[in-house]
Design a protein around this nucleic acid. Structure first.
Lengths: 112, 112
DNA sequence: TTTATATACATAAATTTCTTAGGTATATAA
DNA sequence: TTATATACCTAAGAAATTTATGTATATAAA
């Protein structure tokens, strides 16, 4: 787990990226997927995740589809074309930012 | 200039890294150095910088030395041994975080 | 059987971090 | 004399997140 300040500002980018690669995902699924992909190093908190999903929906970049699974509710999120554009922009901006920080902090370029 | 949310959480790391490479620097100098090194892409705001410098001093990782230059004041900051250790830890953590984000966002490793 | 854990949503108070705006003051170039 | 640069500082407000809490079902463990 990283110190919480580092992760700040990356939540929207992460959500949009994962949703632009998948047909649809629900909130809890996003938390599990991020945990899995990062080996537990990044864990989305529900208190941050759900309000952000609601905001992205209100903004028109995500649409929802509520489904009953057994007796529980699941709210699936899909990305809109506008959202895909936004996801691309955010990911590209973050890639640029990483390059800048890599240089500023004197880190070796990562060669895999 | 990056969207302001991206830069969040990186301020302390940037300050500590620059001060661990230099004998001493003053606040305004830090803003100019970061602007120069990032081609204007990151510009530290004084409202964020000065309170953070004060906090790092209170924490014992920085010490100060006030100097009169002409009729103006300059407050030079130097990093303590504890601060150098913290700088190292923060930079290493950020490097790890960059690797994680690079993978999560499906970015190509940067080969310079 | 009741306890803990996992699934699955949500909100709200408090905290952290930053932006924006303002204040003081000197030096210099237009 | 006006704008820009240098050089410090604080405080109100905004933004993003953490922490805490709530609801509810399902399942594995003790």
């Amino acid at each position: 787990m990283y110190s919480s300040e580092l992760i700040k500002g990356t939540l929207k980018t992460i959500i949009l990226k994962l949703l632009s690669e998948s047909d649809e995902m629900y909130g809890y699924e996003l938390t599990q997927r991020v945990k899995e992909l990062t080996g537990g190093k990044i864990q989305l908190t529900e208190g941050a995740l759900y309000p952000t999903l609601h905001a992205l929906e209100a903004q028109g970049v995500l649409t929802t589809n509520v489904v009953n699974v057994g007796n529980r509710i699941r709210k699936y999120y899909s990305i809109t074309p506008t959202g895909k554009q936004l996801a691309n922009d955010k990911v590209n901006e973050y890639a640029d930012f990483i390059d800048t920080m890599t240089f500023l902090l004197g880190l070796k370029p990562n060669m895999g």
